[in-house]
Each structure stands twice: as structure tokens, then as C-alpha cells.
Simulated assay, not measured.
Amino acid sequence: MLTTACKPPPDEVHHMPQASAAHGLEAIKRTGCGACHLIPGLRWPQGRSGPSLEGFADQGLIAGRLPNRPDTLAAYVRDAPSVLPGTTMPAMPLSEAEARDVAAYLYAAGER
């Protein structure tokens, strides 16, 4: 019997080896992501000019146009304009490791 599903379990889809969600939240706070986005687990600020990032792991697309995959998300949060020209999100002062941590946080925040 062949069994299929529309979507693999989140831990398989968004598995982020060697990334730290806790460090991701610290990077989010340091870079001021909450100034534009509503971010789960971040009490203040609660920005509204960018999209809410609540339930991010369940979204199919990043910025409505890119596949929601860990490698794509890490690249996007680090340097959105080079990944998606024309986006209004600026490049952020994040290292590659910090960008992976931010991605890990956004995926894990929806599971809390």
C-alpha cells in the first residue's frame, strides 16, 4: 500500500542542523527585526509594516515568491535584495551562522 501526504512533517522539512533557535532570537532582537515584523516570542517591538512571522513554518512561500526551505530562508534573512530583487526587506547585518539561527527560530517558534 502506498501512502502519501501533502506535506512532510515539519521536523523533516525545516530541519536545521547546527543552528540554534535561542541564538536566532538574540539575533532577531539585536538586528531589530521586530521593528517591521510581528514575531512570536518577541514582546516588543511589534512591527506591522512587514508581514507577521507567526506560523512561519506553515507558510509555503517566503515573501510570497520563494520556496519555504531552510537554505532559502537563511539566505533571504541575511540579504533579501540579492535573493529577491525588488523586495522591500533590507539586507541585515547577520553572519551566515546567525542567519541559520534566525531561520531555526522562525521555524521553531510556530511549534511552541
Rank of each mutant, 00 (worst) to 15 (best):
C33M: 13
V102M: 07
Y76V: 08
R65S: 15
L66C: 00
R43D: 08
D101S: 06
S20P: 00
K29A: 12
R112G: 14
G24T: 09
P85M: 03
P51W: 04
P10R: 08
E12S: 10
A104H: 03
I62P: 00
A97K: 13
T31Y: 13
Y107P: 01
A57N: 00
S82Q: 11
F56H: 06
G110M: 10
H37W: 06
E98L: 04
G24R: 00
R30M: 01
M89A: 02
T88I: 09
E111V: 02
P17N: 06
Y105W: 08
E12Q: 14
L84N: 01
A74Y: 02
Q46H: 12
L53V: 13
G110E: 00
Q46G: 10
A21E: 03
V102E: 00
P45M: 07
A22T: 11
C6H: 13
G34F: 15
G32M: 04
H14L: 15
H14G: 04
T72I: 15
V102P: 01
Y105R: 09
C6G: 15
Y76G: 00
D79P: 03
D71A: 13
T87D: 01
A35I: 15
T88C: 02
K29Q: 09
R112W: 09
P9Y: 09
P8R: 14
C6W: 14
P93C: 04
G64R: 00
H14S: 02
R65Y: 12
P8H: 08
K29E: 13
Q18Y: 05
P9E: 13
I39D: 03
L2V: 13
F56S: 04
